[in-house]
């Protein structure tokens, strides 16, 4: 498993707990439009991801992150 896939796997795990509509999570799933995350749930998921990988995700990147795949790529970048 590549590192990126490990990030993707963990992120999907976190997002499952907010996946009220039970959509199938793929790289192209949109966090807000598809899963329906509220802004508070976005922040909660980010905190769980940060703690797990021991990183800080700057708020500045959030406007560029819409999908699960984009989030995984950002986490990948931040851990490099």
């Amino acid at each position: 498993m590549t590192q990126y896939q490990e990030y993707l796997g963990f992120i999907c795990n976190v997002l499952e707990s907010y996946n009220k509509k039970q959509v199938t999570l793929t790289e192209s799933t949109d966090l807000v439009a598809d899963i329906g995350l509220t802004s508070l749930e976005v922040m909660e998921s980010i905190e769980r991801i940060e703690d797990h990988f021991d990183i800080s995700i700057p708020l500045n990147i959030l406007p560029d992150v819409n999908t699960v795949g984009e989030l995984a790529r950002k986490v990948h970048e931040l851990t490099q």
Binding site: M43, S56, L59, N60
Partner: peptide
């Protein structure tokens, strides 16, 4: 947000 700095939130 206007600063252009990297913004990190803590709990």
């Amino acid at each position: 947000r206007l600063s252009g700095a990297e913004i990190i939130r803590f709990k």
